[in-house]
Design a protein around this nucleic acid. Structure first.
Length: 848
RNA sequence: GCCCAGGUGGCGAAAUCGGUAGACGCAAGGGACUUAAAAUCCUUUGGCCAUUCGGCCGUGCCGGUUCGAGUCCGGCCCUGGGCACCA
């Protein structure tokens, strides 16, 4: 028996890839050696490097880039394996696949680590980047590393700064004093998206309210488009779309003016229930509402209440749902329809940031208004009832559902929707109301009082005010040799950074010391990969070749943070003329978490499994195989050391199959007519596997079922004993096809075995096989025979057998017929190729 | 409280369009090989009844539609996730 010997990793085989030269004669499966060998082959052949001149059609696969925390964790391994499998599959399908990788390198952990380890955030970060890059390569992921983006490098962030100044010039970025979420541990402001259950998303500390001057980007200007665009994102999981829909939180209603009886103008409220306007018994204003603040100056009780509200923590505000407090103002307003004088209250449950910060309270039909009214003895006036129902006592409980209006002159008998229309017409005609659409979504606060982030390119000039840094002066470099002591940003004390001149008047001025929220960097990196080395602009025409991303892969935890911001930035870039199309990511796969003992892996739980240890023990191919086999990609995956061993056992079995079949294989073309009966079965199975696996990879994205099908075919091939000469040709075909189909998941072992079988070229570039339709056209089926829906047996049926032939065979089959008294058959349900159900008349069914 | 997923053997899971429930793998039991162990191979494995042929039950619970339901419909329970004073 002559087998090609192992290629020597030290002397990679030449491009033609016969792989016959080399020194190794050992037949053992040694992952470490073959993985290094395969990786050096791909690198030498530049398999993963693509550009826009490639004649193959483009396909862009992107996995969410990691924060360089130091080492990869299992979540990364899963995420990037899914991405790599999709990329390798599409490459074999003939696409020029762009799969880039980079690092989301700004962020707070670098500052903490720098203090702990007496190093600088820059050095710490860059060293982590190097480590993690090595780990990614060790796993065999096929990235075009020429395009690498490390976001803390000026070549990248200068364009982020430039983009921000453009937005500023267009009024899409602005600075404003605002009540913000302040994280007292991280000493910084948080966006609403970054507050989870009243706590900072990273520190976990209770967030407090503070009024600080902040930079904002006007995401609300795109709220409608961001919402509407979700409808067309059919390649996204419904779950993510729903979460974004909730987050944007559109509601449409009416803004209504209530005239102040002191003659000083009006208070404007926002309501979605104008149909209840005759049920209004008071107005409630947020504690931060300007009218409240003004009144508090001369009202000490009110002033105390306002100060108290300001100090409460966000979390308490959430818990205190039941505790609705308020203080009355010495002010009345006029009801716009009845002219009645209504009291005005400052109330804890009204939010300054939503609507107009003021509501018309209808205690009979709103649970919050109701509780507040009961607590302070305010009147409750029902104006809605449900048709055909006596209904509960409106004094005891609010009726919040829509219904039919009563006790409302001019609206009586109308349903809620009709009544709203009429109120809008009445008040609109008098200029006392206008339709309004409000969103839960707020403008994105992007200022962070941290050091390790992208400097906000603005200068504060005593004479000219806030001035953007001109494009030719960008980037504003973040000084990297800083003295690092405590929690506050070293930029505040760094005169070399802060002291500058005004770009306008050239007199001394001060730089902005806030840095950007790190979600800024990840909002546009997908586009920069396409124009990674463009030196004089943010992007260039190459983005039109690659964008949008065909397949994006990442964790569900970014459903409303990163994925909403990136969609927003894409629209900004589109409106500035840099990209085409409305959405950045056509298809999205949200992969599930990696669990151990039913819980998310974390240091505090002590259940972390280090990917590097797994690779050292079992090899990258085994790790990748297990990740794909153990669960569908969008579900959580339970880590199992025994499962990993099972995956390794499978790869060893495949290795042995190639070895063992060496003497019984013959190269050539399969002629189905010349196969033995068993050979024909295997041939059919081969082509069914090709069809099934292709469907699983390309359409369903269920890699676990694809692996199961490959294991079945492997088992069949191992058991197969060739009898006809053509059987030997078939066996060769099956073994080779197995390698091709498994390659996206376990690329190294398959590349090595391919080389060993004398396969031409690199398997990584081998065309994907097509199933032979002749093999899929079956001549024989096993169909199930049921009697009254109960399975009673199985019957082998030929393609040409008629229904009546099948029926008579069932009635004469000894095992089946005893369940069927022939005179009792009521009807035959026949599903071709599937089953036959014999339905008996009830009273004549046989007892067991 | 509102919205959304999910609940299938001892475990991870499969069943793709309403048509054989448990593919594939893990674990466990039995056996082969071995002086022995590891590795590997063969074999059994949802529950109950039966010496055998075989039968009955079984996809969270209760009901319904259907010749036929893990899959569709109604109600409920549990787990996980998202949102949560949004007017």
């Amino acid at each position: 028996m002559i087998l090609p010997s192992w290629p020597d990793p030290a002397q990679p085989a030449p491009g033609c890839g016969s792989g016959t030269e080399g020194l190794m004669t050992d037949n053992r499966y040694d992952p470490e050696t073959i993985e290094a060998w395969a990786q050096s082959r791909w690198q030498k052949e530049r398999v993963f490097e693509v550009d826009e001149h490639d004649p193959r059609p483009p396909y862009y696969v992107l996995s969410m880039f990691p924060y360089p925390s130091g080492r990869l964790h299992m979540g990364h391994v899963r995420n990037y394996t899914i991405g790599d499998v999709m990329a390798r599959y599409r490459r074999m399908k003939g696409f020029a696949v762009l799969q880039p990788m980079g690092f989301d390198a700004f962020g707070l952990p670098a500052e903490n680590a720098a203090i702990q380890n007496q190093t600088s955030p820059a050095r710490w970060t860059e060293s982590n980047v190097a480590t993690m890059k090595g780990q990614l390569n060790r796993l065999g992921f096929g990235y075009d590393w020429r395009r690498e983006i490390v976001t803390c490098r000026p070549a990248y962030y200068r364009w982020e700064q430039w983009l921000f100044t453009e937005l500023y010039r267009r009024g899409l970025a602005y600075r404003e004093k605002a009540w913000v979420n302040w994280d007292p541990v991280d000493q910084t402001v948080l966006a609403n998206e970054q507050v989870i259950d009243g706590r900072g998303w990273r520190s976990g500390a209770p967030v407090v309210r503070r009024e600080v001057a902040q930079w904002f980007i006007r995401i609300t200007a795109y709220a409608e488009e961001l919402l509407e665009g979700l409808e067309r994102l059919t390649g996204w999981p419904e779950e993510v779309r729903r979460m974004q829909r909730n987050w944007i939180g559109r509601s449409s209603g009416l803004e209504i003016d209530f005239e102040r009886m002191d003659g000083k103008g009006a208070i404007r409220v926002f309501t979605t229930r104008a149909d209840t306007i005759f049920g209004v018994t008071y107005l409630a204003l947020a504690p931060e509402h300007p009218v409240v603040l003004e009144a508090a100056r001369t009202d000490s009780a009110l002033d105390g209440f306002v100060k108290n509200m300001r100090q409460r923590e966000m979390r308490e505000a959430a818990i205190e749902t039941a505790d609705r407090q308020g203080v009355p103002l010495a002010l009345r307003v006029r009801h716009p329809l009845t002219g009645e004088a209504l009291p005005v209250w400052a109330a804890s449950f009204v939010l300054e940031g939503y609507g107009t910060g003021a509501i018309m309270a209808v205690p009979a039909h709103d649970a919050r208004d109701h509780e507040f009214a009961r607590r302070y003895g305010l009147p409750i006036r029902p104006v809605i009832h449900l048709p055909g129902e006596g209904g509960a006592d409106p004094q005891a409980q609010a009726l919040t559902a829509e219904g039919v209006v009563f006790d409302s002159p001019g609206l009586d008998g109308l349903d809620s929707a009709e009544a709203r229309d009429r109120v809008r017409e009445w008040l609109g005609a008098r200029g006392a109301a206008q339709p309004a659409v409000r969103y839960r979504l707020r403008d994105w606060g992007v200022s962070r009082q941290r050091y390790w982030g992208c400097p906000i390119p603005m200068v504060h000039c005593p004479d000219c005010g806030t001035v953007p840094v001109p494009a030719e002066d960008l980037p504003v470099r973040l000084p990297e040799d800083v003295a690092f002591s405590g929690v506050s940003s070293p930029l505040l004390q760094d005169e070399r950074f802060v002291a500058t001149t005004c770009p306008n008047c050239h007199r001394p001025a001060r730089r902005e010391t806030d840095t950007f929220d790190t979600f800024m960097e990840s909002s546009w990196y997908y586009a920069r990969y396409a124009a990674y080395d463009c030196p004089d602009a943010i992007l260039d025409e190459r983005v039109h070749h690659w964008l949008p991303v065909d397949q994006y892969v990442g964790g569900i935890e970014h459903a409303v943070l990163h994925l909403l911001y990136a969609r927003f930035f894409h629209k900004l870039l589109r409106d500035l003329g840099w990209v085409r199309g409305d959405e950045p990511f056509t298809r999205l796969l949200s992969q599930g978490m990696v669990l151990k003992d039913g819980a998310k892996m974390s240091k505090s739980k002590g259940n972390v499994v280090d990917p590097e240890a797994i690779i050292a023990r079992h090899g990258a191919d085994t790790a990748r195989f297990f990740m794909m086999f153990a669960a569908p990609p969008d579900q959580s995956l339970e880590w199992s050391e025994q499962g990993v061993e099972g995956a390794e056992r499978y790869l060893k079995r495949l290795w042995r199959l190639v070895d063992d079949s060496a003497s019984s294989r013959t190269e050539g073309t399969v002629d189905p007519a010349a196969l033995s009966a068993e050979g024909r079965q295997l041939w059919i199975r081969l082509h069914e596997t090709i069809r099934g696996v292709s469907h699983d990879y390309g359409v369903r994205g269920t890699f676990n079922t694809a692996m199961a099908k490959l294991m079945e075919l492997t088992n069949s091939a191992s058991r197969f004993e060739p009898s006809a000469p053509m059987d030997r040709v078939l066996l060769d075909q099956v073994v080779r096809t197995l390698l091709v189909l498994l390659h996206p998941v376990s690329p190294h072992i398959t590349e090595a075995l391919w080389s060993r079988l004398g396969g031409t070229g690199l398997l990584a570039l081998h065309p994907w096989p097509e199933a032979d339709p002749c093999a899929l056209e079956r001549e024989q089926w096993e169909i199930v025979v049921q009697v009254n829906g109960k399975r009673r047996g199985i019957l082998s049926v030929g393609r040409d057998e008629t229904e009546s032939e099948i029926r008579s065979r069932i009635l004469t089959d000894a095992k089946l017929a005893r369940h069927i008294p022939s005179e009792a058959v009521e009807r035959w349900v026949m599903v071709p190729g599937r089953l036959v159900n014999v339905v008996l008349r009830k009273e004549e069914s046989l007892p067991p």
